[in-house]
């Protein structure tokens, strides 16, 4: 493999929310294959700044795959071609010399574009505010084994808790549904004793908020699971359906 490649970038540029955007093409030469995708964008931006142009706005923070800021649609795939990989963990060795790479922001009505590749994902925050928390007094950290949790539940809750809220599920879903995100948060709590007292109201409120925010409806295509950088299982969505029905049937969902 050669140590550096030449690529052509087709990047979505948009000055502000609600404005018309367009693709701009930037040739980029001698990109190290060791560079991460975001470092490659940094190189592009340095070049743009040096020639007096506006750099491309994109979100990033930890650059180690745990913060969930860096969501980009790369060649039509959320976070690029690799499975269980956030954009920041994608490297240029994954591309070939002469490739044209199309970079777009997440596209959903509920994720309005702020600038270029940056979208406003506060709809997720509002869904969390609607019920993605515990408000009971869970006390101090309990003694080990004072609260018994079956291994299978602890593991499943932990897997669901791995969701970093990046929005790739919404971006990849043909319906722009947020159900994988919501189900991860709901099932993270519902499986643990501390989350159980509020489980009925939690699922009802979070689903209602999700609908209110204008996300689409899940049609079980499992595209979200394939796009998720944290490998959140689609089975959380199926569990959410049971959780939702359980809440409806208990009559406690509106308390």
């Amino acid at each position: 493999m050669s140590e550096s490649i030449n690529v052509t970038l087709k990047v979505w540029r948009q000055n502000g929310p609600g404005e018309a955007g367009r693709f701009e093409t930037y040739p980029l030469e001698n990109v190290s294959t060791h560079a991460s995708f975001l470092e490659m964008l940094d190189i592009l931006n340095e070049k743009l700044i040096n020639t007096g142009k506006m750099p491309v706005a994109f979100d990033s923070d930890c650059r180690e795959g745990i913060c969930g800021s860096c969501g980009l649609m790369i060649d039509g795939q959320a976070h690029g071609p690799d499975r269980e990989t956030a954009t920041c963990q994608l490297h240029m060795r994954r591309f070939s010399d002469g490739d044209t790479i199309t970079i777009e922001p997440w596209r959903a009505r509920s994720f309005p574009i702020l600038k270029d590749l940056v979208v406003d994902r506060s709809a997720f925050d509002r869904i969390i505010e609607a019920g993605g928390y515990n408000s009971i007094n869970a006390g101090n950290a309990p003694d080990a084994n004072a609260i018994l949790i079956p291994k299978i539940d602890a593991e499943a809750a932990m897997d669901a808790a791995a969701c970093i809220g990046c929005g790739a599920c919404v971006a990849a879903c043909k319906n722009a549904s947020a159900l994988l995100f919501v189900s991860a948060k709901v099932m993270h709590f519902a499986r643990l004793p501390q989350g159980k007292p509020e489980r009925e109201t939690r699922v009802a409120r979070m689903v209602a908020k999700m609908d209110e925010e204008g996300f689409g409806s899940c049609t079980n295509t499992t595209e979200c699971e394939a796009a998720c950088p944290k490998g959140i299982s689609f089975s959380n969505i199926v569990s959410l359906r049971r959780e939702s029905m359980r809440a409806q049937c208990s009559g406690r969902s509106t308390r």
């Binding site: 693709f23 649609m73 060649d75 039509g76 199309t102 596209r107 319906n175 722009a176 549904s177 996300f215």
Partner: peptide, 9 residues
């Protein structure tokens, strides 16, 4: 309605 503007790719 949830995705008024689609992806190019």
């Amino acid at each position: 309605k949830a995705r008024p503007e689609g992806y190019a790719v």
